[in-house]
Design a protein around this nucleic acid. Structure first.
Lengths: 409, 409
DNA sequence: CCGAATTTGTTTTGTTGCCCAGCAAAACTA
DNA sequence: TAGTTTTGCTGGGCAACAAAACAAATTCGG
């Protein structure tokens, strides 16, 4: 176990060097999360003096991370302030999303810009770690240009399972059939790289992506409920992703919602995952569960749109349990917003009304009053972008770790 | 609703002045949480240069917050380093704990030292806000010496109910029969003071106290489960207290544990509070629930110690539901430690075994493996000390807000 | 079309805060 | 008692942000 009770409190002091790092990071982070803005806006945002902003922006510009462009049109009286943009030749990361039925890869720059992008289906027979890693290595080589052209700052991986952040070991991924896989090590060998490889849970990373670039922008407290075959949740509190002592915080997929429900693979019965996962919908709609995947879900939705009674009944059933599960989430986490991801985003239009009424009845009035329940805005790319955020985090936290143009030459 | 989605991300820049504040705060915070230590230890803890530590300690000393004493005996070779202690004539706060059947007051200094301390019973007939505030004002005046002698830096209040941090309005306190009480305003008027008055929920504040000074010292992820008539939880994640969008985070008292259980005052049935609260124990043991309070619980525990079958059965029953509730807490929050407070701390020895076996069966193996479940170490004073922490927070965050001896003169 | 008002970039000059080096002091060791 | 180790103390230096003064670029009013 990686528990570390510190007997004496250790508080870090800060030097002026760290002060500079913090301020560079503040500027870069503002641009990353909120997009381009003028130098004068940066001055107002950060509260720093305009001469300081000038030197900081010049520093970031020298490092090839931002560029200054012409000012916005018609901005009022006074001398116009140049617009600061994230450079599109800045450092990039490779983002990888290992899902149950597909693998996604993308080259992502600061600001969450996807430069290049690829997704391939993953047949159930090809889910062995060796095979998955081989596919990733091939795709990765074709996506990534030669080193000097683009500066690769790191690699981030989202995986449907529980991963150990420290060393990228995938502890347990039931839907892939993995157990204790040293994923980061395998990828490092296959991609022949020495950059840092960070691995995280797909729901945790989806939460980060929706919070920074998607449906949850501007909300401090967010729960991202990601449903495919399994159900996981990622939680952001006070703007910070929460992981718990071992990284299992927010494991709501196995909260009991239906004490008389079906047995779950976790050993219990009537877990949220069992009642609202893809399999539950297919089963209730009378579709062969073995056909699980995008097309099977599409079929149910099409049939419901055409008025098919069985499909409509199945959606109502899933909507009911989803509402109950969401009520618990509202009661426990008191979020500003809940973002539904994966296949839950796709059924959202069909179950919206039912969710609203169930939460209205079951959740504590005080907590439910302010919460919004919305579908993902990033769709299938949410987890991919989250993986990119994971890899970009060190660059954002310390922009000085990227060499300046002068240093690189 | 107090939701504030910020359309554009605002990141604070830092000036060198704030750097100094941060470093002063780091030193004071280390002493506050971890106790006295030598200057050389502070140097190692903070990573700052020893000349910097010298000026910082001198600064805090001038402000009357720390004093330097003789070095520790036999510390090894080299010039001995003077020990830095928190001053016992430094700023103090008034801590107030409004419980269901008693009111506690204390004058608390840095480090959580209780200087003076008083607790009085609160008869059910005297729970009206006006009466409570009158009692507090009387006790407060007798406890607090005249202003110049002790510097009163703030007032912190713990209350059994939901409070709004911003203005100290008690939204809802069912066990006191309060609703929308402007508690902070009433206290400000009654105590005739203009210092800041902060109000918080008792479980949230108990969590902070146990984390900094009690059974949870050194653990980054802690859940404090506080049970009396009602049941509430306070949660610390990554060392930071969590409150949620409106302050209702971790409302586990109304999580359903027994779908066939008794109706709860919240409208649902079989809530955790209904199954493990004081009333549940008394009822199960055949004691008149109306007698609820310290003596009634003592009676049940005494009878159990004497081998009384009904009392033992009642404790087993409560232990079972407590185990189920704790399993959910382990699954959802994945904490390092769960601290049982209030009457749950007192029954802990009797239900320890049962809790262990229930959690062993019901919680996810990965999360339950590392968690410790322990009784409160601060006892009835946990919430009182938590209230003190609330009031001390501004001083710890910015020691320069306290005037220096020179400035005061 | 021109000048006043406004706002921001730029440059120079503080001011603050931390680090470093060298020396002195105070312990332990043998 | 001399050597070693560790720490406090002092003065000098560096890095980072702020403030002030001036220049530049725009809007607005006539």
């Amino acid at each position: 176990m990686e528990r570390s009770p510190t007997p004496r409190s250790v508080r870090q002091g800060r030097t002026s060097e760290e002060l500079r790092r913090h301020n560079l990071s503040a500027i870069l982070g503002a641009l990353h999360e909120g997009g381009s803005r003028s130098r004068s806006e940066l001055t107002r945002n950060t509260g720093l003096n305009r001469s300081t902003i000038a030197t900081l922006v010049a520093d970031l510009s020298q490092r090839g991370m931002v560029v200054e462009g012409p000012p916005k049109e018609r901005s009022g009286p006074g001398r116009p302030s140049p617009e600061v943009h994230l450079s599109d030749v800045g450092p990039v990361v490779l983002a990888i999303d290992i899902g149950v039925d597909s693998i996604g890869l993308a080259v992502v720059g600061l600001g969450g810009q996807m430069r290049r992008h690829e997704r391939v289906d993953l047949a159930p027979s090809r889910r062995k770690p060796e095979q998955v890693v081989r596919v990733i290595a091939e795709l990765g080589r074709s996506l990534l240009p030669a080193p000097p052209e683009q500066r690769l700052a790191g690699i981030g991986v989202a995986v449907v399972g529980v991963a150990r952040r420290r060393d990228g070991l995938v502890h347990f991924a039931p839907n892939l059939g993995w157990r204790d896989e040293p994923l980061a090590d395998r990828l490092r060998a296959a991609l022949e790289t020495d950059v840092s490889i960070q691995v995280g849970n797909d729901a945790d990373l989806g939460a980060i992506a929706e919070h920074r670039h998607g449906a949850g922008v501007g909300f401090a407290n967010l729960v991202f409920l990601h449903g495919e075959v399994g159900v996981g949740a990622g939680v952001i509190l006070d703007g910070r992703p929460i992981r718990g002592a071992d990284g299992y915080f927010g494991e709501v997929g196995h909260v009991t919602v239906n004490p008389e429900g079906r047995p779950c693979q976790c050993g219990s019965r009537g877990c949220l995952e069992t009642e609202i996962g893809e399999l539950a919908l297919l089963r209730a709609a009378g579709v062969e569960p073995a056909r699980v995947g995008r097309e099977a879900i599409d079929e149910v939705l099409d049939r419901a749109a055409a008025g098919d009674e069985a499909a409509l009944r199945a959606l109502r059933e899933v909507g009911r349990w989803l509402g109950i599960g969401l009520s618990s989430i509202v009661n426990i986490f008191n979020p500003d917003v809940i973002v539904l991801g994966g296949f839950l985003a796709r059924i959202h239009p069909h179950v919206e009304g039912q969710i609203g009424s169930t939460v209205g009845k079951r959740a504590l009035p005080a907590s439910r009053a302010g919460v919004q329940i919305v579908p993902s805005r990033l769709g299938v790319d949410a987890t991919l972008l989250g993986a990119a955020e994971l890899a970009l985090a060190p660059v954002l936290a310390d922009p000085t770790s990227v060499p300046t143009a002068v240093e690189a030459a």
